[in-house]
Write a protein that binds this DNA or RNA. Structure first.
Lengths: 337, 337
DNA sequence: AACGACACCGCAAACGTTTGCAGTTGAAGG
DNA sequence: CCTTCAACTGCAAACGTTTGCGGTGTCGTT
């Protein structure tokens, strides 16, 4: 009743030949006669023989597996990254093991341990927000296991990585508002201790400066959630000089802003235009639809995996560490034009 | 420069003892002297020894790995299922390999092959929409690899499964509208060749019947997307007798309905109440917020994994196939009260 | 008849680990 | 001084597969 997995030995026993002959027959080795090959292949087919990947891993010292460490799979952005990873890995004949850190340091450490124990050939990682100590990641490098960071990067660690040009993207978003004639643009900013929050604010400010518009501190409000956006929007609307545009650090914030604006009778985009930064699939279903920066999660995953595979497949590839910066592009919808 | 993985043999060589002694020392076997144990453990620590899970799998004929086949990871529902799977599996010391079928049959077959080849101890699967032939799934059973279906179930295959009581959930949703005094409730239905669409419609109809309300064919419209919902809503609004409630087969459809209603000046929920069926994280950010059935993806994943583990961990557990039906519960929000 | 050439196949080791068994000590008991 | 026992430790096989090398048998050629 227990495991029914067919092995090369089973085939060998049944056919009265040796395991090595079976192995060679299955790989079409020239030393093996056509008759034997045929017999072996027929029986393998009949018994549904599947090579034991575990034994192969042990033998070849490579598992054809890559490990992924990701903060939370339920975020649309991360799940689309995984999708990109899976597709590329699959095409290259690799299996993917996904571990969630749930944004926790201890869990991330455990994930690394599990992946190393499974002897993954390479690792893709987006570190958790809680991670400020990197010994577990250095351990990966110590073992010469190639590693590529995506989305979240640690300058202290020398490794390939792929990120999005947040600054440029928010520059473009802001510029889009300016090009539409907006002159008093507010920014709902992310936390200013995270690079994502800082970069997006800088891009916004730079766009204003380049257009000779003033950077007005009262118009930059730290608000990165639906609820905070509602408060922030009300605050804006209570000023004497209304803004004519809002660039929000993410879509949820933008949507909170839009709802508040509409509740208070403001027409979007006529009176105030709104632009978000995509982190879900909300942008298409708001009314009006939301202009937003597309972060290309799928592409990030596929690029990161390709970078990793390049090192895995040519063992003597020793190009210096590479930084791949993806352009995030603005998708213009109804909320801004 | 190549693989730097430390093995038991390395430790043995350095310490001038045999591999078996090292193995035993690491497992605190009573045969080994304290002195040896200490020396081994210290060196193992120093060299960052991690047991080779691959070798263990081969030796023990179990990989401590479970495989998951899922249609699309980017769907919020499925990614939350995975989250539930991961957490339970992780706590039990299992690693998870996730494969996406992308709703394609051929891909699903390939996924099964890969998982069997990796000798996963058990499999969790939600079949693709395209799958109407089940040989690959029978192959899993043939090898005595335990399998649990979730969300999507094949009656032809005898296996544990966990599903949501779609019929009951939509019964409750409809009843909620009726309890709120609605008497003319429309249903935006899912495809009537999928059980999900059929079950939800039946639940809706049953609730009407139980309340002695007529089932009116014109009020049942097949519409399961944002765009179709807009059309369907307009159609409803062009009737002479307006409905006073809409129960939609999913949230996107509900949101399309809401926007259309609002555009045509209908007050929600005053004139028409709307209830959705959750498949994303939209319900909290609409205006008004959307009453919706919560599908408990996380719970589904964790329950399915527990069912699987029960069979994995007690090899002589041979209870008959079990069907676990989860209650989906209605979350009442602003769109219906 | 002897030899080489060739075709075909098996032996055994290896990957890292576990584990039943046998072996080696050293000391205590007779 | 021999036996016995306990306390350790090592040998070797096993998991499934690959692969270098050597072996066998059958030819054809001299």
């Amino acid at each position: 009743m227990s495991s029914n997995q067919v092995t090369i030995k089973d085939i060998a026993r049944i056919l009265g030949i040796s395991a090595s002959t079976v192995s060679r027959a299955l790989k079409n080795h020239p030393d093996i006669s056509e008759a034997t090959k045929q017999a072996v292949n027929e029986l393998a087919q009949k018994l549904n023989y599947e090579p034991n990947a575990v034994a192969l891993s042990l033998k070849h010292n490579r598992s054809n597996t890559i490990g992924v460490i990701i903060p939370e799979i339920v975020h649309y952005f991360f799940s689309s990254v995984i999708s990109g990873i899976e597709d590329v890995a699959y095409d290259a004949g690799f299996t993917v093991i996904i571990c969630q850190s749930n944004e926790r340091y201890d869990r991330e450490v455990a994930n690394v341990k599990a992946l190393l124990s499974h002897r993954v050939d390479g690792v893709l990682v987006a570190i958790s927000k809680e991670t400020h100590q990197y010994d577990h990641l250095f351990a990966i490098q110590d073992r010469n296991v190639p590693m590529v960071f995506f989305d979240r990067v640690i300058p202290e660690i020398e490794a390939d990585h792929v990120i999005i040009d947040d600054r440029k993207a928010s520059y473009e978003a802001t510029k889009h508002l300016i090009d539409g004639g907006r002159k008093r643009i507010a920014h709902f900013a992310g936390p200013q201790n995270l690079s994502i929050g800082i970069e997006r604010r800088i891009g916004y400010e730079q766009a204003l400066k380049d257009a000779n518009l003033p950077v007005i501190p009262e118009l930059i409000i730290e608000a990165d959630s639906f609820e905070k956006a509602i408060k922030a929007t009300n605050k804006l609307l209570d000023m004497e000089n209304l803004p004519d545009g809002i660039f929000a650090v993410n879509d949820l914030t933008a949507i909170g802003a839009m709802q508040t604006l509409q509740k208070r009778g403001i027409k979007i985009p006529k009176q105030i235009a709104v632009v978000g930064f995509s982190d879900g699939r909300f942008s298409g279903i708001t009314d009006p639809t939301l202009t937003s920066v597309d972060q290309h999660g799928y592409e990030m995953g596929s690029v990161a995996t390709k970078m990793l595979l390049r090192r895995l497949l040519n063992p003597n590839y020793d190009a210096p560490v590479q930084s791949h910066v993806l352009d995030a592009n603005l998708i213009v919808r109804g909320s801004s034009v």
